[in-house]
């Protein structure tokens, strides 16, 4: 890691001022689960790190009727364990439980993940599918206007993600097919069955430009919330990631397969029962 300077902000205002004064060389660090590894690899070298983890009031989950608000400093573990979330939008809590590993979930935050927009980040799939609103210290932005491309968001320089807000869907689920090495999503799909028959489908890990809404699948499932509605559909291979872990063609296949499974888990009819293998012969000697 290159030399850097660390400062701990007490408020979002203070944090923004510190980074603004750094002349473009400063970065916010929240859980640091992406930034610190990147700095260790010497692939990032911010001269200043401003820690948001101790900012008062930057953490917390509130549910009001169907409206869910999660503050930026809330960790994945807190989201996964939240009884409120589990009751109103279990699919989203379940997604958080599948992020990284327990140690990562204890540190990593939703604000950091949303601001970074890694192509394999999990939250964006859900936030897109639920048409969530991204909250910053300056404004509110619709998720589809916020996530622009690989590691590219609508955030202005020095702008801080302060949270996300969304309407809890009637039902929702996230399915994730992991990269066997990194264990990040090679394909993750969030299906949200929302009011008035509208269905949202967000896909992460597969798209060459980051997470995206699969609108054809949304339309198909909105018309008929049955897994078979996806049968004739396909995503464009040309827009998929292709790397040593999976070609674009394979990822395109995954998107469809995983989407079907997420839909099924979210309550769509049809499709095979999801159950695990039986262990032969009972217990071993």
């Amino acid at each position: 890691m290159y030399q850097t300077e660390y400062k701990r902000a007490g408020s979002l205002n203070e944090a923004a001022q510190l980074v603004a004064a750094s002349g473009g060389e400063g970065k916010y660090v929240s859980g640091g689960m992406t930034l610190i590894p990147t700095m260790k690899q010497r692939l990032a070298s911010p001269s200043l790190l401003v820690d948001l983890r101790h900012v008062e009031g930057h953490k917390g989950i509130s549910v009001s009727g169907k409206t869910v608000t999660i503050k930026g400093g809330t960790t994945h573990a807190e989201i996964a364990a939240s009884e409120e979330l589990k009751s109103v939008v279990p699919g989203f809590a379940g997604l958080a439980q599948l992020i990284g590993d327990p140690a990562v979930r204890h540190m990593g935050t939703i604000g950091g993940s949303v601001a970074n927009f890694d192509p394999a980040a999990d939250y964006p799939a859900a936030l897109l599918a639920m048409e969530a609103t991204i909250l910053t210290d300056k404004r509110e932005v619709a998720a589809s206007d916020f996530f622009l491309g690989l590691f590219e968001t609508a955030l202005d320089e020095n702008e801080i993600v302060t949270g996300v807000r969304f309407e809890a869907p009637e039902s929702s689920a996230y399915e994730k097919f992991r990269n066997p090495a990194s264990r990040y999503a090679m394909c993750g799909v969030f299906v949200a069955k929302r009011g008035e028959g509208r269905v949202g489908v967000g896909v992460t890990g597969a798209g060459a430009s980051g997470a995206f809404r699969w609108t054809e699948a949304e339309n198909a499932l909105s018309g008929r919330f049955d897994v078979s509605a996806l049968d004739g559909l396909a995503v464009d291979e040309g827009e998929m990631i292709s790397d040593l872990h999976g070609s674009a063609a394979y990822r395109a296949n995954l998107v469809k397969v995983v989407a079907k499974r997420a839909a099924r888990k979210a309550g769509a009819s049809g499709g095979p029962e999801v159950s695990g293998p039986k262990t032969p012969g009972g217990d071993a000697p």
């Binding site: 610190i36 573990a77 327990p102 140690a103």
Partner: peptide, 13 residues
Amino acid sequence: GQAVKSCTLLAVQ
């Protein structure tokens, strides 16, 4: 009280 990776955390944090 929570498991974290001490290689992914600065001492100052």
